[in-house]
Computed example of a mutant assay.
Amino acid sequence: MAFATTTDGIRLFYETAGTGTPIIFVHEFGGSHWSWEPQLNAFARRHRCITYAARGYVPSDIPREVDSYSQARAADDIIDVLNADGIDKAHVVGLSMGGFAALHAGLRHPGRVLSVVAAGAGYGAEKAHEDYFRGISEQVARNFQEQGPKVFAPIYAEGASRVQFQDKDPRGWRLFADRLAQHDPLGAANTMRGVQMRRPSLYDLEAEFKRMEAPTLVMTGDEDDHCIQPGLFLKRTIPRCGFAVLPKAGHTLNLEEPELFNRLLAEFIAQVEAGRWGPRDPRANPAQIMRTN
């Protein structure tokens, strides 16, 4: 088992597969390093693939203090894992909580990031729902601690943007829910309180995103309602950003629609490495409907 030691002394479990241009996969709150198996199986054929368990997720360390968890720390942990594996630069691919971390890595460590993929990133970003999101996040944290993951995981796994996965792939969803039930209750609660509840809204980072140079792909499901408008915001704000909306899809995109997710990711990385993922053509003026002269 391989472990990276972060700059604040936390050990993070990570695993690798394949050779080639590196890709690091950053998991969501409901997942862990195991969440990326469909991607490692596909991309390790031609890339160095890295996946890891975030702090608070076994077998990584579970800091007891909530102040050991933050959005900035989550972004920096990506770089600490790359350092441990001797990697200078990588494509950074994240889902949900991991998508936020990938975006923040692009802002905080631009020299280490070849590109950014943020899938299902948006929960809590909408300004109108900030207070609600913080309140519901605190309830989720309490439920993991008080009810325990085995009781609460099946409830969490049937959220409004998770049932699409359950409908399409009951066996895959069941494996997801069973693994979620194995999460550490303190790690889950501290992650929810330290990272999810305290992170800044994407909209508050508009000036920073306008300066972000990393090629970026945002993905969301068309039934992942609270990620659609934040995705559009990122598309319109980050200079080299594309936006993919997956039809009849929810939140757990890489597991729910692995073939489509992998195809979009492969095309994105190919275009980035060919130098073809540039900023929007200035002639594509969003204020114009039709050209008349």
Rank of each mutant, 00 (worst) to 15 (best):
V117I: 09
H129K: 11
A118Y: 08
F133E: 00
Q145Y: 06
V116T: 14
F144G: 02
E146G: 00
Y123E: 06
V117W: 02
D131A: 11
R112N: 13
A125G: 05
A118E: 14
A125L: 09
A141Y: 04
G106N: 04
G148F: 14
N143E: 10
A101Q: 04
L107A: 08
E138K: 14
P154L: 13
H104I: 13
S137E: 03
G106P: 01
R108P: 00
H109R: 08
F144Q: 02
S137Q: 06
V113P: 04
Q147Y: 15
G124L: 09
F144S: 01
E130R: 11
Q145W: 05
G120S: 15
S137N: 09
Q145N: 10
E138S: 14
F133V: 03
A102L: 12
H104S: 14
V140L: 10
L114A: 10
A141V: 13
V140N: 02
S137P: 02
V151Q: 15
A121G: 14
Y132D: 11
A105D: 14
E130S: 05
G135W: 06
A153Y: 01
A153I: 04
H109N: 10
G122A: 09
L107Q: 07
R142F: 13
L103K: 00
I136R: 03
F152M: 01
G124P: 09
G106R: 00
R134W: 04
Y132C: 03
V117D: 01
G120K: 08
I136K: 04
